[in-house]
Design a protein around this nucleic acid. Structure first.
Length: 951
RNA sequence: GCCGGAGUGGCGGAAUGGUAGACGCGCUCGACUCAAAAUCGAGUAUCGCAAGAUGUGAGAGUUCAAGUCUCUCCUCCGGCACCA
């Protein structure tokens, strides 16, 4: 037997597969269903790193498995070849971006081939190729004609280092996602795509996708839909301000309104504003602040617009109008109504500037101790709840009810006619506890509404307890009446003890109140002090109040339209020309592709390099006439990747981006595996793109990716993210050279489950472990003989087939490999008997997707080239035989009082009742039970016998 | 702060509510060898000589039985964040 020579074997089979066209994919194969598996096409960085292997070689296991399962699988490959990195690298090396990119792609194709993946290179897609971007341009013109693309002046994110505009999605913490430079805000005209038109569908359609919850939630967060009301406030000047609020239920609590400094109305009010200088100063100060500064400044600032007031439409009250930069111009209506009693930010602002607050929503809860009885009427009461602190030891007065009527645990009582809250509280404290020297420290302010059944009075109560806080002045107290003494005891509890003492809601609320003197109530509750809208649940109040003041319920989104203009060279030219009047026209279809000119110095200087192209201008004038000017901006590369999966289907089609026939054959993508970094960018953009194409009647589906799985990250051996500066980069070429592609593929699959976002350090020893496994498989061929397999090894094999078949469907490649290792371990331990050829062949088949080269070699070796199947990869996935998996004997664990004390082996064919008696009759069981009285027996077939005995 | 996810040996990780730590790495001992590597065999959660006890971020709960279910809390990762 020769040694396992991975180099020779891998080279041989890669060549063989290519010669035989083994992985060429037809669109329609009789008797087979199509399966479209996708991974994001890669950027041509010029060098394949471990991340690429993890991204492409591991999913290849699944693609190969699906093929063996009888699917016609398309798992294509291509290059996302436009964009900044190529351009920057080219500039750095003084090379032409095009040449540089094509050179890198050549290098990478060779590296990709060493993976032994099933890519059909005939279908390759290259986004910077005119045959591709012709369709990117065409789609843009279609969007333009259907009002999905438009040109507008907007605030844009400008990266001073890369000298280009960035999409919101490309700005992270106020810095450029790519180079980390702090971005600037700038007004600029650019081409926009109307993604906001799809905001609702982008949220709602997530429902039907088999995607991880985390991606769905991230996309929802990103879109940031919030449902609220738009309400108009009339100003004293006659103008009107619309505000957006999600809390219309608090409208009666408005004590001022705030406009964003950029609000368009402000300049119109100039003549009425008495402190205009101050206002103007504030606005210009705000404009000078960078976005980052504005986000990070915690201290709220603002200026009152003196001489102007706003009328609260709910109660006709005049309230002051302020401008402040905590209100964002770009969200909602750029103006808010301020309710300091129920909003943290308004509260902070009001506190700083001495603005009043008014509480209009209170907490309400239904008692769980004593729930109301639905057949009885509910009687409302005003009541107090006294919180009495002993300042000496910081404990609080609580009462323990002796007769089980416990409802509150504090001193409470109804307010009598003509009595005020403080008097009531003092009277109740005296009656119940005898203490008489009290100092009022706070209240009455907060109130909570409690609905409960009053057990002594036998009636339903809806009590509004107003909280009053006292400190004990001294310990002096009188004896209390016998009647009071009979129902409760007074105990003193610390803050933390109180938490456990009360029912959950009450305790939490109380603790918050006690701990935080500045607590404000921001939750939904029940309205109060709100005129005819009082005592309504928040939800209901929002609707009724909005309607009553002539407002409307609206949805607002955080998502902005997608700006696609880039002032760089290496991208798709935006297919637009301007006539002599400056009006934009799409380039007609017959002039597409609208080629990227080559006569350009593309050193970035903040202006679009295409503006310097004589070639482009000349072409424009030649086709459209003198005075016409070309658009000089290029497109964001996220446009290219928004539709690339269609082009794989029909990459040579010159008449359409993809024919209906091909699209019907393959779309939607069945399985999309990729990186978590694409969650709110590529995945959102391309979902929008597909929906837009569908609305234009260009495709059938409105979601392109049925199943999405995000992969994890491979870290360096030191547990850190691989980076050149840390010197922890693992070079896959070197490992492939030394240990083989099969080993690298399998090791990456073995590190942990695929399709979950986890981080796995690359363990150099771990790779060797996988290599050892393959060597042992290799050596096992010498034990293969033509004999019938024995029962034990068959049982093992079929269990292994079952485990691998099940786990591979769940992308748990790690446990598949583990199962195959177990099988090999046991076969080896028992190897004198030899391995039946048929068993070994089945084992190779389940290993084939993981290690395609070595298995094809061994397959041809054990078959002696006599097989009618020339490659193992054309064979069918072996099915396990249920009858071979069942064991004759099973091991049952014996549990005594919940603890495992031993095991018993029983014949597998004993019925449930029989088994119980059989196990109990075993000597070993009796020994464990040791004569104790059996009180209960629970038998779980195949697993465990749980015995409860008297101690 | 809000939303989502995760916490298990020295490490990566296994465990339909049913014998926690499979499999791999590492480590220890042994065989082979002049020696080393490779390979093979035995062992490897913690404490304990052992019997046994303890153990899945912390604490409660449900259950005959909890890594798994429920609640509270802590830590880490991802998304959003002065978003009204």
């Amino acid at each position: 037997m020769k040694e396992y020579d991975h180099k020779k074997i891998e080279k041989k089979w890669q060549k063989e597969w290519e010669t035989d066209g083994l992985y060429k994919v037809e669109d329609d194969v009789a008797g087979k269903e199509n399966f479209y598996q996708l991974v994001e096409f890669t950027y041509p960085s010029g060098n394949l790193h471990v991340g690429h292997w993890y991204a492409f070689a591991v999913p290849d296991i699944f693609a190969r498995y699906k093929r063996m399962r009888g699917w016609n699988v398309l798992y294509p490959m291509g290059f996302d070849a436009f964009g900044l990195p190529a351009e920057n690298a080219a500039i750095k090396e003084g090379a032409d971006p095009k040449k540089w990119t094509y050179d890198q792609m050549d290098k990478m194709r060779g590296q990709f081939r060493s993976m032994g993946a099933v890519f059909d290179w005939e279908r390759e897609v290259v986004s910077c190729d005119p045959s591709y971007y012709r369709w990117t341009q065409w789609m843009f013109t279609q969007f333009l004609k259907n009002d999905l693309a438009y040109r507008a002046v907007t605030k844009v994110n400008w990266c001073p280092k890369d000298q280009t505009i960035l999409a919101n999605e490309q700005v992270v913490d106020g810095c450029c996602e790519r180079c980390g430079t702090e971005i600037m805000q700038k007004d600029q005209e650019q081409w926009m795509l109307r993604i906001t038109k799809y905001a609702d569908r982008l949220v709602d359609d997530l429902e039907k996708l088999n995607w991880p919850n985390s991606i769905k939630e991230s996309q929802k967060n990103w879109i940031g839909r919030s449902e609220g009301s738009e309400i108009s406030f009339k100003l004293s000047t006659g103008a009107e301000v619309k505000v957006f609020t999600t809390r219309a239920d608090t409208l009666f609590g408005v004590t001022y309104i705030v406009l964003a400094p950029e609000h368009a109305l402000i300049s119109n009010l100039k003549s009425q504003i008495s402190n205009w200088n101050e206002v103007e100063q504030y606005i210009s100060d705000t404009q000078k602040k960078s976005e980052l500064d504005r986000q990070q400044s915690k201290e709220k600032t603002g200026v009152e617009l003196k001489g102007v007031t706003a009328i609260n439409p709910a109660n006709g009250e005049a309230v002051p109008v302020w401008i402040a930069d905590y209100v964002l111009a770009g969200y909602g209506t750029g103006a808010v109504m301020a309710v300091p009693a129920h909003d943290e930010r308004d509260f902070e602002f009001a506190k700083k500037y001495g603005l009043p607050m008014r509480r209009v929503v209170e907490l309400i809860y239904d008692s769980k101790d004593s729930p109301i009885k639905s057949e009885l009427p509910i009687i409302k009461r005003d009541a107090i709840c006294a919180i009495v602190r002993n300042p000496k030891d910081d404990t609080y007065m609580c009462s323990v009810w002796k007769n089980g009527i416990h409802m509150h645990g504090l001193v409470t009582g109804g307010i009598d006619a003509g009595e005020n809250v403080i008097e009531t509280a003092k009277r109740e404290i005296y009656e119940e506890t005898g203490y008489k020297n009290l100092k009022l420290v706070r209240g009455p302010d907060f109130a909570i509404h409690s609905k409960f059944f009053h057990r002594m009075k036998k009636e339903n109560r809806w009590a509004r307890f107003q909280y009053v806080f006292f400190d004990l002045v001294d310990d002096e107290h009188d004896p209390i009446s016998e009647r009071e003494a009979a129902i409760h005891d007074i105990v003193w509890k610390t803050k933390s003890e109180m938490k456990d003492f009360f029912s959950v809601i009450e305790g939490q609320f109380l603790n918050t109140l006690v701990a935080n003197p500045e607590y404000i109530f921001t939750d939904d509750g029940i309205t109060y002090n709100s005129g005819e809208f009082s005592e309504l649940p928040s939800e209901e109040a929002r609707q009724k109040i909005t309607e009553a003041v002539g407002g409307k319920m609206v949805k607002t989104y955080r998502l902005r339209d997608w700006g696609i203009s880039r002032q760089r060279y290496w991208g798709v030219p935006i297919p637009i020309v301007y006539d002599p009047e400056g009006k934009a026209h799409p380039i007609p279809d017959e002039h597409l592709p609208w080629l990227l000119p080559t006569d350009v110095d593309h050193t970035p200087d903040g202006t679009a390099p295409l503006a310097r192209s004589k070639e482009l201008l000349a072409r424009t004038e030649k086709i459209f006439g003198k005075g016409w000017k070309p658009e000089v901006e290029t497109m964001d590369t996220f446009v290219d990747s928004s539709w690339y999966f269609y082009r794989y289907l029909d990459n040579k089609n010159e008449d359409e981006f993809a024919s209906r026939l091909r699209r019907d054959a393959w779309m939607p993508v069945d399985l999309y595996m990729g990186g978590p970094e694409h969650t709110t960018m590529h995945l959102l953009y391309s979902r929008f793109w597909v929906k837009a194409l569908r609305d234009l009647g260009l495709v059938e589906e409105d979601e392109a990716y049925l199943i999405r799985r995000n992969r994890g990250l491979v870290l360096g051996p030191d547990g850190n993210k691989m980076s050149k500066s840390k010197g922890n980069v693992v070079n896959p070429d070197e490992i492939v050279e030394r240990l083989g592609a099969d080993t690298v593929r399998m090791y990456l699959a073995f590190m942990g489950p695929y399709g979950v976002t986890g981080n796995y350090p690359w363990d150099p020893n771990g790779v060797v472990g996988v290599r050892r496994f393959l060597e042992r498989v290799w050596r096992l061929q010498s034990k293969v003989n033509g004999q019938m397999s024995n029962v034990a090894s068959q049982t093992l094999l079929h269990k292994t087939i079952q485990k691998v078949s099940e786990d591979i469907e769940l992308f748990k490649f790690n446990t598949c490999i583990s199962a195959m290792m177990i099988c090999l371990n046991e076969w080896e331990a028992d190897s004198e008997k030899g391995i039946a050829r048929e068993d070994f062949k089945k084992f190779l088949q389940i290993l084939a997707p993981f290690a395609p080269h070595i298995t094809d070699e061994l397959w041809s070796n054990v078959n002696g080239h006599m097989s009618n199947v020339p490659s193992i990869h054309l064979s069918s996935w072996p099915l396990y035989d249920e009858s071979k998996i069942t064991e004759d004997e099973i091991t049952i664990a014996i549990q005594i009082n919940g603890k495992v004390r031993g095991t018993v082996v029983i014949p597998a064919d004993i019925e449930k009742e029989g088994a119980e008696a059989y196990i109990l009759a075993q000597e070993s069981t009796k020994k464990i039970i040791n004569g104790r009285k059996i009180e209960r027996v629970i038998y779980v077939p195949m697993r465990i016998l749980s015995v409860i005995v008297a101690e």
